[in-house]
Design a protein around this nucleic acid. Structure first.
Lengths: 365, 365
DNA sequence: CTCTCGTCTGAATCAACAG
DNA sequence: CCTGTTGATTCAGACGAGA
């Protein structure tokens, strides 16, 4: 454990503290921490069991630490830890909080009420989320993070150029596409099961710490879990303080951190994933008014036609379905690329719909 | 103006009402509206002017309607209109609210406090956002929408299959990539300037209305602006009610709506789920001689078999019951869809019994 | 070694209806 | 109201077995 003296009080750097996070934070000196990353309980309020269509059971987050009696209880909990966190934050420090729609609105309002100043909300768009198995809602494909300074007008840290580099030379946006934490990165317990139900990916913390701290800064995480914040902080040459109530999680985190080595500068380069051409649903052409419901499309060979429907399907003689399905059926073929098969007419000209897809792709870059 | 009588009170359909939205909503009959889409003031709290790198000035939202004295004032405003909105919503109705990090956390918390039940938060990811000119924060590239039912357990409308079709056959996620409203879609005032500072794109409303309303539903927008909600509702064969305080916006909206044409009926029909198809008792297959009592059925995986009985139940080894019960028992699963689980053999081929159900359904049309 | 195929899993407020 | 029955519903990616 490294220690820093701060106004006569010691700062327990690069260690994991047990106990209730509010009490522990209150025991630390005020104005002493550069960044706080917090992943508090989401208060999911799940009802019964959930099964996948193949009848396997979803391993839900039903841990005691996620149970709150009411919104009021949760709000009080939130207010308390945000207040304690704000006291130990340096005047130019900042906080990141992550949550889902179950809790993030209450957390955001509490942040504002406590005097924090919201700088951005950032959406973590999961590239591989769990689907909605009952077809009753949208796939829950994102979580929300709030980035806030200690107060309005504070000089927070923002490494604009570093983030721009991470983003292939263009300004980093408020939506980040990153995969969830699985595979070898996921910490396992002694039985080989996942050690923590909600472990966050290192890529997320990497971007946060590169963007809003400098080497040598102190990063505190009041809900440390298996220690992703500490692991990434250590790699990036930042100091961390973790607080975690559950001994089992602390043990996993200690072991994990002992394995982590600080990055050499060259390994700091993240591997950029190869970007394939984004998939454009045909329905978007309808939503965006490029094609009107009711408009007729013609097959490339001019032999067939079909009408566009409001949901992005086609209706022909006795056949309904996607552009691909209807094309295949009309041609009696096993499959058909609807994008190159169908054309629309404009000013007497026959134009393949693929041209519209290319327009959308051009906008997406 | 079309009118609907609702419990003795008139519903002013397809018209734009002037005045304060709370007062107007309170004058409407309770439980009368299917969907509310609301784009309330964001309470942006901008300080001073913003200039682009080329020194041109950004035309900011500095209208009087976006000024609130404090969070408390904004919260009271939010609570009031959410309460009024909830009263006029049908029990199985739903609401969509859009906002940014300035206001959405307060709106979301207020929704929960008023008894709405959040179904999803949906991120509108802008494909062409305005950059952050000062390089001090992330590009503000998204806005957040909250979708909520009137109360927990309500039977809200969700056109799962239609949305899936709009998304090239995979289920719609909670993050939507759509461009901002510009070009010819942007309404202009008599000077050729943008008529409203925060006009929403029609594509956004298209997806919302296709997904969470049916043709003939009543859609109310308490902050109507230049009438995007009304325009898309009209196109899609939904009725709308707009409320807008500012006469200038009402005039633009009236003109806009007069230009809109409704799509044809057949193109408005969207793909429906199997859930809406009529139930067919398995016993009917036996009664109609499609399966004979004593005939053997095989499980899809070929591992189990059972015999059909005259009353439409199955009998396997040590187990009797419905096609679902026997399937579940043999698989040791909590439940089983017997229609897709069991197959019969004909001419050496293995055919799922669901095919027979489809034949019966086809006759029922 | 490569490739294919089957299996497993992830912060989830996840059913409707008849009796 | 509650209870039991019917029956609708999944995407991306990692991993291991087997060819």
């Amino acid at each position: 454990m490294k220690n820093k003296v701060k106004g006569g009080q010691m700062l327990p750097l690069n260690s994991i503290l047990g106990g209730d996070c509010v009490e522990v934070m209150n025991s630390l000196p005020e104005n002493s921490v550069d960044l706080i990353f917090a992943d508090p309980p989401y208060n999911l309020q799940l009802r019964g069991d959930l099964h996948r269509p193949d009848n396997s059971k979803v391993d839900a987050v039903d841990d005691a630490w996620d149970q709150f009696a009411s919104f009021e209880t949760y709000d009080r909990f939130t207010r308390d830890w945000l207040k304690a966190a704000r006291r130990i934050l340096k005047p130019n420090g900042a906080i990141w909080v992550i949550g889902s729609y179950h809790n993030i609105f209450r957390v955001g309002a509490a942040l504002q009420n406590e005097g924090y100043w919201i700088l951005n909300d950032v959406v973590w768009r999961k590239s591989n989320p769990m689907p909605n198995f009952r077809g009753k809602r949208f796939t829950n494909a994102h979580e929300t993070m709030i980035w806030a300074s200690k107060s309005e007008g504070a000089k927070y840290t923002f490494n604009y150029e570093a983030l721009k580099s991470l983003n292939e030379g263009v300004q980093m946006r408020s939506d980040w596409v990153l995969p969830i934490c699985n595979g070898g990165e996921r910490e396992k317990d002694e039985n080989g099961d996942k050690a923590h139900p909600t472990q966050k990916p290192q890529s997320l913390l990497h971007r946060i710490l590169v963007g809003s701290t400098n080497p040598g800064d102190v990063v505190l995480d009041p809900f440390f879990g298996t220690g992703t914040t500490g692991a990434v902080a250590k790699m990036l040459g930042r100091d961390f303080i973790g607080i975690e109530r559950e001994e089992a999680y602390r043990k996993v985190a200690e072991k994990r951190l002992s394995r982590i080595r600080k990055f050499d500068r060259e390994t700091l380069e993240v591997s950029t994933s190869k970007r394939s051409e984004p998939r454009v649903p045909f329905g978007q052409l309808v939503e965006r008014g490029m094609l009107r419901p009711g408009e007729e499309l013609w097959s490339m060979n001019g032999r067939h036609k079909a009408k566009v429907r409001a949901d992005g399907t086609l209706i022909g003689d006795d056949i309904k379905g996607s552009i691909h399905q209807v094309g295949a059926a009309l041609e009696g073929a096993p499959s058909c690329n609807g994008w190159t098969y169908w054309c629309f007419k404009k000013d007497g000209q026959t134009i393949p719909i693929d041209l519209l897809r290319q327009q959308i792709r051009a906008e997406m870059i």
